[in-house]
Amino acid sequence: MAGSALRRLMAEYKQLTLNPPEGIIAGPTTEENYFEWEALITGPEGTCFEGGVFPAKLIFPSDYPLSPPKMSFTCDMFHPNIYSDGRVCISILHAPGDDPMGYESSNERWSPVQSVEKILLSVISMLAEPNDESGANVDAAKMWREDREGFNKVAETLVRKTLGIPTSK
């Protein structure tokens, strides 16, 4: 019998295709491997990331949903909670007890109740409201705090890049 992780991922995929939440497209990269997903996330409206379509990949552990997946953006990102290599650092992606930043409460941590959909929605809200206490990208956090104009400019170039529009100068 197929593993419970596989069945749950299939169920989530079905749910996401039948009933897609706004601004999110996600699914397995290939039909043979349900443990590697691609996702497209649109930048939330009214923020500096508005209009962008950001590709990301999700890698699921074989004991999913007991352990959280790993998520990273595959495009260039500049955001306080995203490492420069694209890895996303939000509490929903960390199991309770493993705390890279030391400030998160266990309430927002991973548990089987969470799902791909919730992760992606959390990422969207993270794009809208960065948590500048997190040190995933110190430069971005500093810029977000002190030079919002500059941050918005960088975000705009990123958005243009994802859409394939040359930067206006």
């Binding site: 009933n19 929903i92 309430n107 548990s111 109740v113 919730k118 929605l121 969207i124 809200s125």
Partner: peptide
């Protein structure tokens, strides 16, 4: 409860979350 707080903070739709 904690999860609800998390869910709402992450802008999840509460209608679908069975929790």
């Amino acid at each position: 409860p904690s999860t609800e707080a998390a869910a709402s903070s992450s802008a999840t739709d509460n209608s679908r979350g069975p929790s």
